[in-house]
Simulated assay, not measured.
Amino acid sequence: MSDHPLIISSQFLKEHLNDPQVVIIDCRFALADPQQGYQQYQTSHIPGAHYLDLNQDLSAPVERHGGRHPLPESNQIAQKLAAIGVRFGETLVVAYDDSRCAFAARLWWLLRYLGHDRVAVLDGGWGAWQSQGYPVTDALPTPQPGQFVPQVRSEWVVDINAVKARKDLPDVALVDSRARDRYLGEHEPIDPIAGHIPGAINYPWQEVTNAQGYLHSPDQQKQRWNDVQDKPEIIVYCGSGVTACVNLLSLELAGMARGKLYAGSWSDWCSYLRETSG
């Protein structure tokens, strides 16, 4: 699918490579090897694409609480976006990765959280672009300065206190976006404690796309959320607030634009459990 304002096809992007109103951002990243994404970008990327790093650009430094990928400070990310040519409210930003939207959706959500709605993800990501035989390059782009004054939608984010206070209310659905085995506590490769927040239901983020990273249709996304469509508030979390954004993209595609992000997610929740357990 590529006929939705949140989704850009490779063909559309190829036709707009030289459009001054479009800024392309490569979000490739590997949690197990934080340097890999930038190395891949330096080797080969979509012409004109800039690179933003999950750890360095799309997250703030890790602290005692707040999770493994705290949200970046809004003025700092705004300066970075302006430096690569994004004009607030005007530029169409196209984000891509090679991880089924895992990192591109983080940027997509962040921009909209900052008040910039003209942002889309590349359907199928880097793999789709390559499979079409479209041009790639190792040349680094020369940025044209933009301007970005964020208008933060702070109500889109909740902290641990809000989760505790709201998660069991009848009008609220708490959604765990991690893979089923992590949700069940059968496998925990990253965080110190296995399991999930009590009361959470499981919607694995990988279900938003097919194996090649193409997003399922809006109708399929809507059907996926059928069991919570009557909930006025949906709080979404994952391990660290990154892949939860793929579910927030899914909710938006489903016409259920009422999802909120528990930014610290399970890694933040764990940090308090460890203290109480000694």
Rank of each mutant, 00 (worst) to 15 (best):
114 L>G: 05
115 G>C: 01
117 D>I: 13
118 R>P: 05
118 R>Q: 15
119 V>Y: 06
120 A>K: 02
120 A>D: 04
123 D>P: 09
123 D>C: 09
126 W>P: 07
128 A>N: 14
129 W>H: 03
130 Q>N: 05
131 S>T: 14
131 S>R: 15
132 Q>E: 13
135 P>A: 11
137 T>W: 10
138 D>Y: 07
139 A>V: 12
141 P>N: 09
142 T>E: 15
142 T>Q: 14
143 P>D: 14
145 P>S: 01
146 G>L: 00
146 G>D: 07
147 Q>D: 10
147 Q>Y: 11
148 F>K: 05
148 F>N: 07
149 V>K: 11
150 P>Q: 09
150 P>L: 08
151 Q>E: 10
151 Q>A: 06
153 R>Y: 05
154 S>Y: 12
156 W>C: 10
156 W>P: 02
157 V>E: 08
157 V>Q: 11
158 V>L: 13
159 D>E: 14
162 A>K: 14
162 A>S: 12
164 K>D: 06
166 R>H: 09
166 R>D: 07
168 D>F: 09
169 L>G: 04
169 L>Q: 13
169 L>R: 11
170 P>C: 09
172 V>W: 10
172 V>S: 10
175 V>I: 15
176 D>T: 04
177 S>Y: 03
177 S>Q: 10
179 A>G: 08
179 A>Y: 02
180 R>Q: 13
181 D>Q: 10
181 D>A: 12
182 R>I: 06
183 Y>W: 15
184 L>N: 08
184 L>Q: 14
186 E>A: 09
187 H>T: 03
189 P>M: 08
190 I>K: 07
192 P>L: 08
192 P>C: 11
192 P>G: 11
192 P>Y: 10
193 I>R: 15
193 I>E: 14
194 A>Q: 13
194 A>H: 13
196 H>G: 01
196 H>R: 15
199 G>C: 04
200 A>E: 07
201 I>P: 05
202 N>P: 01
205 W>A: 01
205 W>G: 01
205 W>R: 02
205 W>K: 01
207 E>I: 14
209 T>G: 02
210 N>H: 08
214 Y>G: 03
216 H>C: 06
217 S>L: 10
220 Q>V: 15
222 K>E: 06
222 K>F: 07
224 R>N: 07
224 R>C: 08
225 W>Y: 15
225 W>C: 07
227 D>G: 04
229 Q>N: 11
230 D>F: 03
234 I>T: 06
234 I>P: 08
237 Y>P: 07
237 Y>G: 10
238 C>I: 10
239 G>C: 10
240 S>R: 08
241 G>A: 10
241 G>E: 04
241 G>F: 04
242 V>G: 02
242 V>R: 00
243 T>E: 02
243 T>P: 00
244 A>P: 04
244 A>Y: 03
244 A>R: 03
244 A>G: 06
245 C>I: 06
247 N>G: 03
247 N>K: 05
248 L>K: 01
249 L>M: 04
250 S>T: 02
254 A>D: 12
